[in-house]
Design a protein around this nucleic acid. Structure first.
Length: 826
RNA sequence: GCCCUUGUGGCGGAAUUGGCAGACGCGGCAGACUCAAAAUCUGUUGUCGAAAGACGUGAGGGUUCGAGUCCCUCCGAGGGCACCA
């Protein structure tokens, strides 16, 4: 008879005591130290996106690291040599802003937060290898940012150019295209303006085709959504370049995806803010009007520009372009609906088949000529047609469909030297200069005589000067420029006085290669060891938020390809498999102080314990889905942990008993659970894996309550299996169970039990017998029953006989051993 | 506007290749224990119906012996892109 105390968790299961018992033991056993070179086990590299040290861990971290941990711990149980490192993405604006606000040093603030997060992660039982930790703000880390930058500089992949860049007046720095969302600064949500500046860029557009085409390798391994977003972002389009003569000026080339509609061009547009527009306007009677228009355009913000329902505006430049196919004179307009930094900054306008051109044509009373036959006339409907169809009014293109017409016109233009096939990308080069202090200094010295001079490699790292004494407040120029002693140096080439580049790098540079630094984070002679990279990379499983679907992942993929070209790595894609976890929300919306729906992780941990919080995160649903904390029950999770834990105290056999002697029914339940949970984990259905573990706990409970001896080997086998399965999610509880079962730590290394296939086969199967698709009978049959026998049995079953009374049978579908469907004749 | 994803009990969610819809859990209800409550344990819980049974995976249609699953149309939710020629 069971003692009452067994059902009293407040006496038995005590999460606080269990946590305190095992944390110090793990420090000694260190079950997750990885990467010994002589380790015979196959490798798995499991990587969580590293955190930004902006304070203590929050609920979002708790979810992400719980999920990453399930995967890392699973592969360790399955016998793999798992590398699961962690580090800190420690440069960036929040540290600097916090420093300004409190008059502190960004370094101090950053490292304090890191220490806090580190100790929280340790308590949260993250299975990180604490021997491999990195901080991107460490000079020994960022020196390699500088090294990579110089390697790119040498090859022309890093270059400086002047252009109108995105400028956040609040952050007082430039932003990459990727950091501007709907015309607002991604960080502070202020309106982004344009500013003409000379800045450093990385030539990511050189890699656009490979970034796009290599995604084939990721198909099925990355979320489709992310692949799609990357494809859209790169935005490759195929078309042609066509050269137009200009009356009284030099010829102009345009890019078009629809060269087949060349006969439908009725006007010509150049980007108002392009040099071409200014050149064409110069000396015409339209010059004054053009200047006034340009001034207007420059005043408008991105927000205004992005409004899609904005009426089209522009100025006729009093010039004409000559259509190369028919010699027609096309009036040239300057307008802000044409972008100066895409294609050639000039377009041929085909209003019948392009909505934007049609809108402009209607606003300026320009002719509309249909060249692809359509049911409705765009000039009347106001809707441009983009469908395929026979060409009309198009000379010898008449009658051809779109694909054929495109091929023919390109061939014709090419023969005359007036055009050629062309590709274009939405993707722009990556602007990496930032006018802030807390980042990697750009290792370039500007010399009046020698120009941009690379800092010699033996002088790396270019360390940040001490922040004390510098005014870090945003003022539009880098604070480093005011560090006189730091900024003024002799030119490495000629020795004359010169100045260091005072900008720092975008922090996305730091995170573009950090996964390689983990291999040997203290290597002082190179960024990483190529031999170790061959062994460990690419990353088998990457885990992180979908917020980085474009930025970080695109940049890291770009860096990887550059490293491949530099012969530093032997792979072209860094992350083989990607899991995007969802967010933790509260009552339907993202948690925030201002909303008043913030749930503090530390509170949850104190009340329910680490394991219950982790279990709640994992069990809530599919990992990609958001978790609404209001919908889940950490108390319920704790109840389950206590139930499972209590079982471990009831086992009365000794470790090492022969499981084969145990009760077959319970053994079957155990092996089925192990099998199902294994499959579930591998397919990211962690919640299902947990459910399978719960089923086994329930089955074991029922078996014991039903009279099975607690000394039966099957009971030990079941409870040990529970402990091992639970070790992925609830490390403290399962470690304690393992100990109560008479084993030495750590359960994390116990190994996933081998499933006995014979125990997965049931003695009998429930066969359902349907009549016209409705279940009428259930039969217990042998799993290897023949179809004929099963059909005979089904037809003889009383329920079937009764239901079929007086009806003829049309067909019988037999799917032995699980189903028979009898179809009566009407 | 365009593209993608998604829609299953009161709630979170399960459901190899089309084959017993609702696993597992939360919540609810009933009972045990208790002076009482909490906690815990046991049972029960899709809807309608006393029952037999019928109905049931956003709506409508289709394919099929059989559809949550496949196809078409529509509706709702979430996300991405939004003058990229």
């Amino acid at each position: 008879m069971r003692e009452v105390a067994d059902h009293q968790p407040e006496v038995g299961y005590d999460h606080e005591a269990i946590q305190n018992r095992w944390l110090p033991v793990w420090d000694e056993v260190a079950p997750f130290r990885s990467g010994r070179l002589d380790d015979p086990r196959p490798k798995k590299y499991v990587l969580d996106m590293f955190p930004y040290p902006s304070g203590d861990l929050h609920m979002g971290h708790a979810e992400a690291y719980a999920l990453g941990d399930v995967i890392a711990r699973f592969w360790a149980q399955k016998g793999f040599n798992v590398m699961h490192p962690i580090g800190w993405d420690a440069f960036g604006l929040p540290a600097e802003n916090a420093a300004i606000k409190r008059g502190e040093n960004p370094r101090t603030w950053t490292y304090e937060n890191i220490e806090m997060q580190k100790s929280s992660m340790r308590r949260y039982a993250c299975s990180f290898d604490w021997d491999r930790v990195l901080y991107t703000c460490d000079p020994e880390y960022y020196r390699w940012n500088q090294w990579f930058f110089l390697e790119m500089f040498k090859r022309g992949l890093a270059y400086r150019k002047a252009s109108a860049v995105n400028w956040c007046p609040s952050c007082q720095t430039v932003l990459a295209n990727e950091q501007v969302v709907q015309g607002l600064c991604e960080r502070c949500d202020n309106v982004v303006t344009k500013k003409k500046l000379t800045q450093w860029y990385l030539r990511i557009t050189d890699y656009a085709d490979r970034l796009l085409d290599d995604m084939e390798q990721l198909e099925g391994e990355w979320p489709d959504k992310v692949l799609l977003m990357q494809r859209n972002w790169i935005g490759r389009s195929k078309g042609a370049e066509v050269t137009f003569d200009i009356e009284g000026s030099d010829p102009v080339t345009v890019y078009t995806t629809r060269p087949d509609t060349l006969y439908g061009a009725t006007f010509f547009v150049v980007a108002a803010d392009s040099e071409l527009a200014a050149k064409l306007a110069a000396g015409t009677s339209a010059e004054g009007e053009f200047q006034a228009y340009l001034d207007e355009v420059k005043k408008s913000t991105d927000i205004e520009r992005l409004a899609t329902d904005r009426p089209k505006t522009g100025v006729f430049l009093q010039r004409h372009a000559i259509n190369p196919v028919n010699g027609e004179k096309l009036p040239i307009y300057a307008s802000d609906y044409v972008l100066s930094d895409y294609g050639t900054g000039a377009i041929m306008a085909v209003p019948a088949h392009d909505q934007r051109d049609l809108d402009f044509a209607r606003a300026f009373n320009l002719p509309v000529r249909v060249v692809v036959a359509a049911d409705e006339d765009p000039a009347l409907t106001g809707v441009a047609t983009a469908d395929d169809g026979p060409h009309v009014n198009s000379g010898d293109l008449d009658g051809l469909n779109k694909a054929d017409a495109i091929a023919k016109i390109i061939a014709q233009l090419e023969a005359k030297g007036l055009g050629k096939p062309a590709k274009n990308y939405r993707l722009r080069d990556w602007l990496i200069s930032r006018q802030r202090y807390w980042g990697t200094p750009i290792p370039i010295i500007h010399c009046d005589d020698c120009g941009e001079v690379a800092v010699p490699e033996d002088q790396l790292p270019v360390e940040l000067p001490d922040a004390s004494g510098l005014d870090l407040s945003p003022k539009g120029a880098s604070p480093l420029g005011a560090a006189e002693e730091w900024v003024n140096v002799p030119c490495p080439t000629c020795g004359k006085p010169a100045k260091r580049d005072s900008d720092t790098m975008d922090t996305f540079v730091d995170s573009s290669w950090y996964f390689l630094r983990y291999l040997n984070p203290n290597d002082s002679v190179r960024a990483f060891d190529p031999e170790l990279a061959k062994q460990w990379l690419p990353i088998d499983q990457y885990v992180g938020g979908v917020t980085h679907a474009i930025l970080h992942l695109l940049y890291a993929r770009f860096f990887t390809k550059v490293m491949y070209d530099l012969d530093l790595v032997n792979f072209t894609e860094p992350f083989k498999r990607l899991l995007n976890q969802g967010m933790v929300v509260m009552n339907g919306s993202a948690m925030s102080k201002s909303r008043g729906n913030l749930v503090r992780l530390s509170d949850e941990l104190a009340v329910h314990g680490v394991d219950a919080v982790r279990l709640t995160m994992v069990f809530a649903g599919p990992p990609e889905d958001d978790i609404d904390w209001a919908d889940v029950s950490p108390a319920g999770a704790k109840k389950f942990l206590a139930r499972a834990w209590r079982l471990s105290g009831e086992v009365t056999s000794e470790p090492g008993v022969n499981f084969a002697d145990g009760d077959v029914a319970l053994r079957k339940a155990t092996h089925k659970s192990l099998h199902d949970a294994d499959l579930a984990v591998q397919t990211y259905r962690f919640n299902v894996a947990v459910a399978k573990t719960m089923e086994l706990v329930n089955a074991t409970r029922k078996a014991i309550d039903g009279g099975l001896s607690t000394a039966d080997p099957a009971v030990r086998e079941a409870v040990e299996a529970v402990a091992i399965m639970m070790s992925l999610v609830a490390p403290y509880t399962s470690e304690d169970m393992w100990s109560r079962l008479g084993h030495a730590p750590s359960v994390a290394l116990a190994g996933w039990p081998t499933v006995d296939e014979r125990l997965l086969v049931d003695d009998s199967v429930t066969c359902i017998v349907q009549i016209a698709g409705k279940v009428r009978e259930r039969l217990e049959v042998s799993p290897d029953i023949s179809e004929a026998d099963l059909q005979a049995m089904a037809l003889a079953a009383p329920g079937v006989v009764k239901a079929l009374e007086g009806r003829d049978i049309r067909t019988v579908i037999v799917r032995a051993p699980k189903l028979v469907n009898i179809v009566p004749a009407s």
